[in-house]
């Protein structure tokens, strides 16, 4: 990753235009030829420096539902509990964290009723309480990870 790659990553985290020739517009801003921008973007995606490039859709705005949930898995049963949770296709992420609430997972479904059903099934199968923490409000963020 050289300085031009870094400039591309930093610039494109902020946004990308919707117009006839958006890459040309961005390449003029960065001062490199359009073909080079496209080639470098492809490489950054192929090597995994960028996880993705494109529109980020809002799940709830599309009619889907999301929640963050946590569980206190006893240490002896940790792997077993994690496996039960991971088996649900609705579970998109699952992280172990350093807290009594040691399993944190995101449930994504196409309807909000389905969230409750998934939580109930996880509680039945694990015999543990699921702490449901759906967002009450999301605050606008300006994340910029300097490359």
């Amino acid at each position: 990753m050289d300085d031009t790659d870094k400039a591309i990553i930093n610039y494109l985290q902020k946004g990308f235009p919707i117009c006839e020739s958006p890459y040309q517009l961005v390449s003029e801003q960065l001062g490199i030829p359009e073909a080079e921008l496209l080639q470098r973007l492809q490489k950054l995606l192929d090597e995994g420096t960028l996880s993705r490039f494109g529109p980020m859709y809002h799940a709830e705005a599309m009619g889907g539902a999301l929640t963050l949930a946590a569980i206190k898995a006893p240490e002896q049963q940790f792997d077993e509990i994690a496996e039960i949770i991971n088996r649900f296709p609705e579970v998109a992420h699952n992280y172990q964290r350093n807290h009594d609430l040691n399993l944190w997972f995101v449930i994504a479904t196409e309807s909000s009723d389905r969230i409750q059903e998934v939580i109930q099934s996880i509680e039945e199968q694990t015999r543990l309480q699921v702490y449901n923490m759906p967002k009450c409000k999301e605050y606008f963020v300006q994340l910029q990870l300097e490359a």
């Binding site: 591309i8 990553i9 494109l12 985290q13 902020k14 946004g15 990308f16 919707i18 973007l41 950054l44 995994g48 420096t49 960028l50 996880s51 993705r52 490039f53 494109g54 529109p55 980020m56 859709y57 809002h58 705005a61 599309m62 990870l145 300097e146 490359a147």
Partner: peptide, 18 residues
């Protein structure tokens, strides 16, 4: 995008890779 269905169009870096 104006209605928030698209949050934004952007590059998402892999945190660990950076």
């Amino acid at each position: 995008q104006e209605h928030g269905i698209i949050r934004r169009i952007a590059a998402i870096p892999n945190h660990y890779r950076l």
